[in-house]
Amino acid sequence: MSTSLATEPLLELRGVNKSFGPVHVLHDVDFRVHAGQVTSLIGDNGAGKSTLVKSIAGIHPIDSGEIRYEGEDVVIRGPRDAAELGIEFVYQDLSLCENLDVVQNMFLGRERLRRGLLDKSSMEQAARDTLATLGVRTVKSVRQPIRSLSGGQRQTVAIARAVLWNSRIVVLDEPTAALGVAQTEQVLALVRRLADQGLGVVLVSHNMNDVMSVSDRVSAMYLGRMAADIEVTASTTKEQLVGLITSGQRAGSPTTDTHGDDT
């Protein structure tokens, strides 16, 4: 309880509203991301998770409300604004070029130059260093094309790319949705490690097992509103989280168990 309240959140959204034409999707949403913590964002289909994430990304700028970054008011109008603040995104449908190799993907759009030409060896070294500090063991060569990697390895590369830029916050939209058991574990371990290294991590997920295993906090959305923002403790149960998703209430007992694990 006391730990997260003592430190100021790295990113804080207050009273955020967002409409698409007549459709009011986000209603006075409050949301906090703390450095060194994994904050999971849960909620039923259509609850507004992706919309919230995209408004942080600048893809859907907010209509009203405020965004504070390190205690200061900021305006995020486009993806570049978010990148400049040090917020990186790993989208659900991977944003990798299969024909390019690991290094080329990690530096895509931000290639290092030396005398006007691509500085391949420095990029290769940096890519290797980043993967090594993340403790990634599954990628044997950074010169492999993405085409030859497994789903988990690809997700690893996508995440490593996000942290290559001295980013402070990494937002992952369902990073394990398409992965098998072993690969899910690897990716979750990596997600945990990012937070342990001091980054603020936001994890959007439908899988309550994943959420329970890596999260410090859980923010639950219900019909476009923030229904709860709780700390994950030893006494937190899966049933509580499912209750938040299905009814927006902190129910003591599970009402139904058909929703939580739909991935």
Binding site: C97, L108, L118
Partner: peptide
């Protein structure tokens, strides 16, 4: 094509235009 940013981006767009767009290309 092998040693300039433009060359690299040409391959990226051909490989996955959406990924290239998200990477700021």
């Amino acid at each position: 094509l092998d040693n300039t940013r433009a060359g690299r981006h040409l391959y990226a767009v051909g490989g996955n235009a959406e990924a290239a767009r998200r990477a700021g290309i």
